[in-house]
Design a protein around this nucleic acid. Structure first.
Lengths: 216, 216
DNA sequence: CCCAATATACCGGATTTCCGGTATTGCGCC
DNA sequence: GGCGCAATACCGGAAATCCGGTATATTGGG
């Protein structure tokens, strides 16, 4: 069963030379068997529909003539859902990454990766992981941080967030006070503090800012 | 050239009986030649990849085992972009319609359509039209209307829209007045009218409502 | 030509918000 | 134990908003 334990992999990339070299490298690893290389999505999809044993992992380029690798993801995932897809491409545009991940790609590597990076990624994905290029990881972290909600961005306390919530949903100070079982004055104080933190000076400015920067 | 002028059509629907009947009906029309029926997307896609002469029009069901007709649209449009797709399905969920149209379907009929409806639709799509079930058309109109922006939905006058714009961007009544070269009282009057139309009673309520329903 | 709608403008009183104070309690941390 | 911070609470005056009036000029359509 030693040869059966090797992970079956296909490569879809219109660069024939790249396919060949990578294929050789993968096979040298001992744990991976690169079975096929396709230069177009169409031929690969055709093989997937007729093939009785789909690969465990597909390495997929984005920029290819005719059908883009991004579009191929959906088709592959529909035809053979169990096949894991790792994008292996030169393009690191945020939009491409988002699209790939949302369509079902499990990993995203850049072509600047070394063969051993790719081998690691294939093994990782086989274990249910999501291998990402370190550069991509960094970018995702940044995006994640950038998405911090207003409250966090402005260091609002949890109580202040409660108040903000109420203020956004059209209640008077008095109403907020009863809703949260607080004194009118307490709410007033909180509001003053929120205004200071968000650098606004009235209710509509607050709502506008909060809704602009997402939240509410 | 008489037989060549007939429009080549395929049907993809897992209901074999339905395919057969419809196929007969289409062929009786004289203008249409129903060449193939497929009971699954997979077999149809396979045929499309190998076939040298794809059909002009495909009638496509949504609910099918394995691959949904909705998912097939993308693949068909990639493989043979010139092929027009008409959805022919029992499902009239808005979400399905949106998906189908966004993925490239040209028409959307319900299975309650008569054979002559379907024949008309095929001929219409061949001429570059977008045949839609009357029911669907109605629904789309409603959605279109529902998408009217707040101002339109609430019949705001153009001046009121100006004011609303300013109010949303954190200005006091006084500031709005100078910005638009109006008297404080005029702006105040407009605001009263806007409040009445939008059924709110204060600035933050207005901003909240406006931003919730898009705008700003 | 008149009417309805729109835009403009004004008044005054009630209500709400804004803001700068002050103050107490509790909690975690050095 | 003291310090800082968060949460609670209160006061009062200034400012802004809300609202129900009233009123005039313009304009487009029947």
């Amino acid at each position: 069963m030693i040869e059966n334990s090797r992970i079956p992999v296909w490569i879809i990339d219109d660069n024939k030379g790249f396919c060949f070299i990578l294929s050789e490298a993968l096979n040298l690893s001992g744990t991976i068997e690169c079975q096929r290389c396709y230069q177009s999505c169409k031929s690969a999809l055709l093989a997937l529909t007729s093939e009785e044993s789909p690969p465990s992992v597909i390495l997929l380029d984005i920029k290819m003539p005719k059908m883009s690798g991004l579009d191929a993801i959906t088709s592959i995932k529909t035809l053979t859902p169990a096949t894991q897809i790792i994008m292996l491409t030169s393009y690191d545009l945020d939009e491409n990454i988002r699209t790939a991940v949302s369509r079902g790609a499990s990993g995203y590597l850049l072509k600047s990766s070394t063969p051993s990076d790719i081998i690691n990624a294939i093994e990782k994905v086989q274990k249910g992981g999501s291998p990402l290029d370190p550069m991509i990881t960094k970018r995702m972290m940044e995006a994640f941080l950038a998405q911090r909600s207003v409250e966090n961005r402005y260091d609002l306390t949890s109580r202040e967030k409660d108040i903000l919530e109420c203020l956004a949903s059209d209640l008077t100070v008095q109403e907020v006070a009863s809703k949260l079982s607080l004194s009118y004055f307490t709410v007033d104080t909180h509001i003053k503090n929120i205004y200071q933190k968000l650098d606004v000076h009235n209710r509509h400015g607050l709502v506008t800012k909060a809704s602009k920067e997402r939240l509410i």
